[in-house]
Design a protein around this nucleic acid. Sequence first.
DNA 1: TGTTAGCACTCGCACGCATTGAGTGCTAAC
DNA 2: GTTAGCACTCAATGCGTGCGAGTGCTAACA
Lengths: 339, 339
Amino acid sequence: MDVDARKLRILQAIVEDYILSNTPVGSRTLSKTSGLGVSSATIRNEMADLTEMGYLIQPHVSAGRVPSAKAYRLYVTQLLPQGMHEEELTGARRAFTSRVRDMESLLTQGTATISDLTHYTALVLTPRQSDLTVRSLHLVPVGKERALLVIVTDSGVIRDTSIRVSSRLDAQALYTIGQMLTQRMRGLTLREVREMLYGYAASSDADARVLSGIADLAAQVEKQTGSDRVMVGGAHNILYYPEYADVSRARAFMDALERRDSLIAMLRQGEDQLSVRIGAETGIPEFSDCSVITAPYRIGRGHTGVIGIIGPTRMPYARMLDMMRMFSQELTAALSVKE
Amino acid sequence: MDVDARKLRILQAIVEDYILSNTPVGSRTLSKTSGLGVSSATIRNEMADLTEMGYLIQPHVSAGRVPSAKAYRLYVTQLLPQGMHEEELTGARRAFTSRVRDMESLLTQGTATISDLTHYTALVLTPRQSDLTVRSLHLVPVGKERALLVIVTDSGVIRDTSIRVSSRLDAQALYTIGQMLTQRMRGLTLREVREMLYGYAASSDADARVLSGIADLAAQVEKQTGSDRVMVGGAHNILYYPEYADVSRARAFMDALERRDSLIAMLRQGEDQLSVRIGAETGIPEFSDCSVITAPYRIGRGHTGVIGIIGPTRMPYARMLDMMRMFSQELTAALSVKE
DNA sequence: TGTTAGCACTCGCACGCATTGAGTGCTAAC
DNA sequence: GTTAGCACTCAATGCGTGCGAGTGCTAACA
């Protein structure tokens, strides 16, 4: 048995009805509202076939049908209707770019903005940093024994953290050290910088020992570059979906969001392109009733981060894909403008 | 009718029982478990009095009693038992200080840490910054037309944001400008700095015009100093309390958390000392079934921020007060160490 | 051969009703 | 002032029932 054109149309109608109503779709209402021009009995026959093929699920005998993950997959792959109207998308674009315009605002405002605009839970994964290359390093005095380390990389991203330094060093000395470090490390990746710093700390190199906190410095670079960070925002949005009227489900969802390592793994998988993962495709059991849409963004040469949204599988895919594509483009544009 | 010693003891027993069980407390179980040595009938009489006085509420005739906000207020003011055991508190202290050790980690980890340790929703309000005084300013080149502005204040806090600058300025020029700005502005408050910068932008002062983005600079300072920021974390914790088994209540709670200005106003009110606000005392209608415990933290001379937790009025006050007091002390110690 | 009308059947859901039991207020005795 | 006893209240629970949306099947029709 294959999925012919009529079956596709019926499936599409069921999916779209269900996305709007969240109630099982019956043959009678479908034959009336879908404009397919066939009777409910015919639709019943087709629905029986689609159920047998695994595209539809009957919650119980006397209820209508609910799309399965397989149905959503087919829908997203083959049946997507046109998405958002241009003017609507433009409005969203404006809202997005006014709040997110650089790396800093992405980190502080990114998840909030995306979740506000989509009404789903938003995810932002920071780019891998260990293979960014260094353009310059600076040390800024901020206290008796503390300095701010600013690392400028080729993608314009600044990693800044406060480190300990010898109290003998004044502003001028720190400036000079910064210039020296820049000279030595320009063009190296952050990973190489880290290793070089550890080397300095171990050796007794006269130049290097000027920094009493050199190991500290290396450790900070390590911390900043070692692992990706993922941010989550708008988790409360799921409380608006009837799928989560039961608090225990909402709890399970939110607990899963706290397990950052599996989130990171999931987001990294969608690193290269706009992607939709439905139910079990997410690879996270708690999200088996959810779909995740992710989109990459690029900063500089090939360093990519990922943004994503997550919500019930019953999701207006076309609209959301349009949105995420747009966010991704805007982000990439905003972040690579910087020389 | 006054609240004599026995009434107090009964009230205390009811509050503590209810905090643990979240079920209306009946006279029979109370006479058995509380060790007061009086019969249930006697307790019933006292309970009737306490109800009349407004300390207890009957959900319905044949249910037990539930403490009113007035009862919690009396409990917190007069009846607090000893709080946490020393070793338990020490464990929490260690967990806290290992994650929150400076302003930066407070901003990134503060709410997560506090909510993890208390299992309530955590709030962190940043200190008012407009009357911090400036110690030095620095400009660090981070791209063709961008520089990082670092402002070091007397409380060691660094405000850094990226601003536009003229492309003609190299690292050395920016360094010199930073020194010049430091010389002129050292000792001024951030508010005065902001005004001075606006003044420069308006005038045609030759020195000032070197910075093509001087208005940008002032605007950034304004943005950073003008308004306090409040961070919220661990909001999902409330889903574990049966008071929020109904999703619509959880939703109302979380929506109220999004209205940052009223949150800020609420937190600012508890700026000067450890405080408990119960129900309507919070001043926020959505939190009429919640209690808020806030504690100030100080950075440098008299600049205070506030941390807080919020949860159902049925809260183990003694423990939570101990915790918040400890957080407040540790934070103040950690943030004022810096010269 | 595909489509449709008809019909018996299923089963979740809402409703009404009785039962249960925790807890109360009141009274009378101690 | 305290306590035992007792009638009373009322939310919660469980059970039976009717309703209705929706199905699968069959037979007739184009």
